[in-house]
């Protein structure tokens, strides 16, 4: 008998009598204004926030945020950078990227998280091998809480999806908070309305 069958048989035999599945409310009464809360929570998780640029030059903004960066690789058309993502053959080719740039599909006010998937990243490792990450986000793309977030279609479609909240962090040594444990050392969200179509 296969292990699959043995496990499923044992589970069927042993599982307790049927318990019902509750409805999950959205818990969305009296939620604070989402854009403001998003910024507060992002800061609480160690993320940075940048105001929009009046002239719409996001390349310049990224340069200003990371003046020492040599290699900037962008997955969003608002920023050109100097590393073409389409040249990347393997994820590890992104090892030398100083700043990755992406546009988030949406944000979550409750936690200060941004939603990113292969649709946004192009190459998923961009979000992790880069030393720093800059994330463009349209304020109207922010949902109130995780209940709203998890009811969105994106989760059913994406091959890979991540709710990213601030930079990589660890407190594994004496509880001292350190950013840039393994992933990005900083994460900056830039207020950036989507270009009108």
């Amino acid at each position: 008998m296969s292990s699959r069958k043995m496990i499923l048989d044992a589970v069927s035999r042993n599982q307790p009598s049927a318990a019902s599945l509750p409805e999950v409310p959205a818990f969305d009464r009296d939620l604070p204004p989402p854009w403001q809360q998003f910024q507060e929570r992002l800061a609480g998780m160690g993320g940075k926030f940048a105001r929009p640029v009046p002239d719409g030059n996001f390349d310049a903004l990224v340069r200003e945020l990371h003046p020492d960066a040599n290699i900037i690789c962008s997955a969003t058309p608002e920023v050109t950078g100097n590393r073409d993502l389409s040249d990347v053959r393997e994820p590890k080719d992104l090892d030398d990227v100083d700043v990755g740039v992406v546009r988030a599909a949406f944000g979550i006010a409750e936690t200060g998280s941004v939603y990113l998937s292969e649709m946004e990243f192009g190459v998923n490792a961009l979000g992790f091998l880069s030393q720093h990450l800059v994330v463009l986000l349209d304020p109207t793309d922010v949902v109130g809480n995780l209940h709203h977030a998890y009811r969105r279609r994106e989760f059913a479609d994406a091959a890979y999806a991540v709710l990213m909240t601030g930079p990589s962090a660890t407190a594994d040594i004496e509880g001292v908070l350190i950013h840039g444990a393994q992933g990005v050392r900083s994460l900056t969200v830039v207020e950036a309305p989507r270009p009108s179509v």
């Binding site: 998780m45 936690t111 200060g112 995780l146 998890y150 709710l163 909240t165 930079p167 992933g183």
Partner: peptide, 22 residues
């Protein structure tokens, strides 16, 4: 949503882990 809202809050007292990956 129910579990992610409580997991990191219960574990280390942050509203969510830096990465919740699917």
């Amino acid at each position: 949503a129910v579990f992610v809202r409580m997991l990191s809050r219960s574990a280390v007292g942050s509203p969510i882990t830096q990465y919740t990956s699917h």
